[in-house]
């Protein structure tokens, strides 16, 4: 499966991936979703009310309402312009916008987000890294395990030990283990 995306690959923010004068597959749907979403946000902004004070120019509604209206107008113009552009020939959603790799990784990221709290950082991340690296690199298990677990331990040490970020421990008794090491180093009483 060869993916031809060299032209306008969108990897730099300064040169976004759209084409001038042509419409990519799915662009119209995206534009329509943006337009409808903006209209919904205008409606939602209108509903903002200040319970503790006046609702005039200084209302918490003022700026949200103004910006969502700008969003809706801009999205409307984009949609209108896009609709009149010819479609890019030779591109399909499956090949150029959402190839299998991207879908798999996206699903894995969502699964990661769901599993993080109940299962905990270490097991979830280990599984994520091993599967993702195995899938993308297609190399031996030994190499995959070494690279993924090695980098995971490094990340864990930096965030959990050095920066004391309390990432959900889940099923791993992290705090107990750390305390064990701590008393070990301090010479347990």
């Amino acid at each position: 499966m060869k993916i031809e995306t060299e032209h306008h690959d969108g990897t730099s923010d300064a040169t976004p991936g759209g084409y001038e004068g042509q419409r990519r597959p799915g662009e119209l749907i995206f534009g329509a979703v943006m337009f409808l979403g903006s209209l919904f946000l205008v409606f939602s902004a209108w509903g903002i009310e200040n319970t503790f004070g006046p609702n005039g120019l200084s209302s918490p509604r003022a700026i949200p309402l103004a910006t969502t209206i700008v969003m809706a107008i801009a999205a409307g113009v984009i949609l209108f312009k896009d609709a009149r552009l010819p479609r890019v020939t030779g591109e399909t959603v499956m090949k150029d916008i959402l190839p299998v790799n991207v879908i798999i990784l996206a699903v894995m990221l969502v699964a990661y987000g769901v599993a993080l709290k109940p299962i905990g950082f270490l097991p979830t991340s280990a599984v994520f890294l091993i599967i993702a690296i195995k899938l993308l690199a297609r190399r031996g298990w030994g190499w995959t395990l070494l690279v993924s677990l090695g980098s995971l331990i490094l990340i864990w040490i930096v965030f959990r030990i050095v920066f004391t970020v309390l990432i959900p421990a889940g099923i791993v008794p992290e705090a107990e283990v750390i305390q064990m090491f701590r008393s070990l180093f301090q010479g347990a009483p």
Partner: peptide
């Protein structure tokens, strides 16, 4: 290799956002 870099960037993004 990108095959290693990409999953690592994703993991760092998650931990970073949590932190």
């Amino acid at each position: 290799p990108r095959a290693v870099l990409i999953p690592l960037i994703m993991l760092l993004s998650i931990v970073g956002a949590y932190a």
